[in-house]
Design a protein around this nucleic acid. Structure first.
Length: 439
RNA sequence: GUGGGUGUAGCUCAGUUGGUUAGAGCGCCAGAUUGUGGAUCUGGAUGUCGGGGGUUCAAGUCCCCUCACUCACCCCA
């Protein structure tokens, strides 16, 4: 009896067509993080359950993959990279010193129901700064998100920002301080369920219609980012928390603008709150203009108390996380993924088997020049080999037989253009480079 | 986790009120074409109808269970 080959719900295989762009995105993300001075770290997939529970709220506890290991230890798979980082920081901050900036990329697991762009195993690319409450770090996160998205080839996106202090202050002022979580969760759905929907949910949670309306009025203030801030300040600037939140947001907008980023990229959105309980200040979400329904592809915020669960030392932090698999799902849907199943751009046609040695010699020469070359393994008909090359997404093919070797030349074929030119043996690499440069 | 939808060839799908050997397009393979792939022609292979069980003389079609995908809720990357 054969075992049926299959994967678990929410867990996936990654064929070359997914893995090649995936590795490309990871490489670009890595370069961006490093360019800002974030240093790489990694932490285990498995942690003591007590490290992870109670950090993201009830919901993330429910979603935890949790079990007893062979030593009867209560363990769980990480559901994000931020909580393990807080544990790591608490353990090692003495050696690391502050401020400390790190990036980490790896899989996380959440046992929730699947949906488009939503899996039970997915990769996050996290970047965080800990050890400082300086708003400069909050602002830098916006710059990183922006440059990250651009480096990944995305132009049409918008970074939504908010600050929990603004919301917390507002809630205090309208008498909802005790219902912060309920109120924020309801408010978070504004874009989805509309004003009446939010009011209804607030009503269920015991919030009076008057307070609910007040909250919504504020969350729905229209205008430019600056106008919204001015409006909030006028009405609630007297509250210390709100005032501080506004100050930070205003500085953020100003610095980002001065740093040369288009205002239209940033959207002050008082309605976003984020479900994770550990956020305390600035909040970020990033949406694709062409596919907003897939959700935020890069989110995060400031968490000033997270590491406090593991150490008495004050370790505030701020950061965000790129949802790699969700982003790839979006790119796939937007047909922005190249249909390439080969990581090497050049196919060496095995035209006449007796010249295999010469083919391999040329392939090695090119590889030494940094050009990826695959030598076709069988001396099949040239047409068949070219067809293989096109199907896999090779850019160029090299062809040579007795005639060419006699003259000391190679035929270099551009697969897409179906154009062929003859190149002297010593100039093959030079001829290939410009042909590959054009995207 | 809750509720709705879907699941037929590699892909996109058709398949009438249950009724013989389950179809189309595209793709794939071989040949026409033993130094060159987008065309044409000829020939060819395609499937446990997601899986299991049941009703029936008879199930792709009806019922139950299960798995996966998908949408909504919830939550989130």
């Amino acid at each position: 009896m054969l075992i049926q080959p299959r994967t678990l719900k929410g867990f996936r295989d990654y064929p070359p067509a997914l893995m090649i762009p995936r590795e490309g995105l990871l490489e670009k993300a890595r370069r961006t993080f490093r360019s800002y001075g974030f240093a790489p770290i990694d932490t285990p997939a498995l942690e003591y359950a007590e490290i992870l529970t109670g950090k993201g709220g009830d919901e993330s506890d429910k979603q935890l993959y949790r079990f007893k290991d062979h030593g009867d230890r209560d363990v769980a798979l990480r559901f994000d990279l931020t909580v393990p980082f807080a544990r790591f920081a608490a353990e090692n901050i003495g050696q690391l010193g502050t401020p400390f900036k790190r990036y980490a990329m790896g899989p996380v697991w959440r046992g929730e129901n699947t949906q488009r762009g939503r899996y039970r195993e997915f990769w996050q690319c996290d970047f965080d700064t800990i050890g400082t409450t300086s708003n400069a770090s909050d602002i830098e996160i916006v710059l990183v998100i922006h440059d990250l998205m651009r480096s990944l080839g995305l132009e049409r996106f918008r970074i939504h920002v908010n600050n929990r202090m603004v919301l917390n202050g507002l809630l205090e002022e309208i008498g909802l301080a005790g219902k912060t979580t309920d109120a924020l969760r309801a408010l978070d759905k504004l874009a989805k369920v509309g004003r009446d929907g939010v009011l209804a949910e607030l009503g269920e949670k015991g919030v009076a219609a008057e307070a609910g309306n007040k909250l919504l009025d504020l969350a729905q203030v229209q205008g430019t980012n600056d106008e919204i801030l001015a409006h909030l300040e006028r009405d609630f600037g007297g509250n210390a928390k709100t005032a501080e939140g506004i100050r930070r947001l205003r500085e953020l907008l100003g610095v980002v603008r001065t740093a040369g980023i288009d205002d239209a990229r940033l959207r002050l959105d008082v309605a976003i709150a984020r479900g994770l309980d550990y956020y305390t200040g600035t909040i970020y979400e990033t949406f694709l203009d062409d596919l907003p329904t897939i959700g935020s592809v890069c989110s995060g915020g400031r968490y000033d108390n997270l590491a406090g669960l593991y150490t008495k030392q004050q370790l505030p932090g701020v950061g965000a996380s790129l949802g790699l698999d969700r982003l790839i799902a979006a790119l796939e849907e937007l047909k922005m993924l190249p249909n390439v199943a080969t990581p090497a751009p050049v196919l060496m046609v095995q035209f006449q088997a007796e010249y295999l040695g010469r083919y391999q010699a040329m392939a090695r020469t090119l590889r030494a020049e940094g050009i990826g070359v695959e030598v076709y393994p069988e001396p099949k008909k040239i047409g068949a080999q070219l067809q293989y090359a096109e199907k896999r997404g090779f850019r160029l093919a090299l062809i040579a037989g007795a005639e060419e070797f006699e003259k000391g030349v190679w035929k270099l074929k551009n697969l897409a253009a179906r154009e062929e030119k003859t190149v002297a043996a010593g100039e093959v690499a030079d001829a290939i480079r410009p042909a590959l440069a054009g995207g």
